[in-house]
Design a protein around this nucleic acid. Structure first.
Lengths: 238, 238
DNA sequence: CGGACTATTGAGACTCCTCAACTAACGTGG
DNA sequence: CCACGTTAGTTGAGGAGTCTCAATAGTCCG
């Protein structure tokens, strides 16, 4: 297996020096070590990788596609903890059991690695482990940003921050200043579960933003940002 | 310097075997390595360790006391990302700058370690680095729980989950089944900023829970849980 | 002992949630 | 390829809950 798409995506906690940038990516040696352990999986939409409380035997790395990580709450509501994109690692566990359920939103290619083998590798390869440390740190920062999003009391504010999150993600693949058009692979209901809103509130919000000339939806899974300045203002007006 | 209080507190992501439990704590060797780099600081209440956007030159480990990590939002509101307790590590950075501001809530003893030196140490000592990886993973899980708390729409639900968080923390120091009395070192305003409520809403909520016979406040910084079952029910009724 | 901070309680405005009906889009099988 | 059934999304009306503003009580620290 070549596993040439193995990658870890993370802003380092150190200053962005030449060495700092390197922490974002895996070296060829890292890729080789990992690919020796990894199984490549190519799965259709809606595939569940694992359910919460299941024994945590693997860690996953996304090569292509988008995944949602969620918990179903006793009330029947669903809380989406995070959306995961290419370069993201998932498989968060506690006491040997998965914390969330993860499901493919699009067709997804992942590399599946047994945790025990990964642990051994990380203990042997401190440099590779440092990449994972940066990655988890990065996810912690994003989780804190997510918390700020859902703390907001207006739906437009939440939705604006959601779009900024998508932009941050897209930023990794396309160049800055690119077309102000984003893919929105998740459904309105997913967005609602992520932001702590009802699907109706999300729908009303997108309608309002379209009417105000800030956004346009060529189709349900694509958004054009017509007024980036105003969107920023809404996102920042916490 | 002995630094005998150096500790890292985290539920491992692996199963809790004998080896798993060990990941929660530092070995003597780890302590020695770290204490060679660390400066012990003993600071009074309200001391600010660093402000957001300041150059991130250190990482801190708490030996005694409680710290809050927050951001002041453009609107003037304050968002508390997390409370930090003995055994917690803080100094979350991005591109060489701190993400949050951190301030002592009580008198606090911390060990301050230069990041550059810590990074070198972690790269040399994969075993120690693994402890940090577990720790950050643990904080990620807690951040996700926090997000669920603030997503809830009722103040009693949020407050109940806040108390469960305090209980989880306390659990590390005292034995389970101990006295159902918790220290609440933070102010009502801090709790409000943590839960995304107004101070008034927090106050109304505590009053309601006292009237319903679920809680009692011997003083403002101590709470007795009179009806643990009902509190659990409120916390779980997400 | 005084002053400043912290906490509590009350009344009206705002926003979202729930319930319900309806429309649009997808995708599955004939 | 089309038709149908299912899922996803939109829009409206009333109710629940918190926020804001304001005033009061209680506490802690100097």
């Amino acid at each position: 297996m070549t596993a040439s798409e193995l990658a870890i995506r993370a802003v380092p906690f150190e200053k962005l020096t030449a060495a700092g940038v390197a922490t974002q990516l895996l070296t060829d040696r890292h890729r080789q070590n990992l690919s020796g352990l990894a199984t490549e999986l190519n799965v259709p939409r809606r595939t569940i990788f694992y359910r919460e409380d299941a024994p945590a035997e693997w860690v996953f790395m996304i090569a292509k596609g988008v995944v949602k990580s969620y918990r179903d709450l006793p009330s029947g509501k669903r809380h989406i903890a995070t959306f995961l994109f290419p370069g993201d690692v998932f498989g968060l566990a506690e006491n040997g059991r998965f914390v969330n359920t993860t499901q493919a939103i699009t067709r997804v290619t992942v590399y599946r690695i047994p945790v025990a083998a990964l642990k051994d590798l990380l203990l042997r390869d401190a440099d590779l482990q440092f990449r994972f440390l940066c990655k988890v740190t990065h996810q912690l920062r994003e989780a804190q940003r997510h918390t700020i999003s859902v703390t907001r009391h207006t739906a437009v504010g939440k939705f604006a921050m959601f779009l900024k999150m998508l932009e941050r993600d897209e930023h990794w693949r396309s160049e800055p200043g690119g077309p102000r058009s984003l893919m929105v692979p998740m459904t309105r209901a997913d967005i609602a579960d992520y932001l702590g809103l009802s699907p109706e509130a999300v729908s009303r919000t997108t309608s309002r933003l379209v009417r105000r000339g800030i956004l346009a939806f060529p189709d349900r899974h694509r958004v054009r940002i017509l007024d980036p300045a105003e969107l920023d203002r809404l996102a920042m007006a916490v």
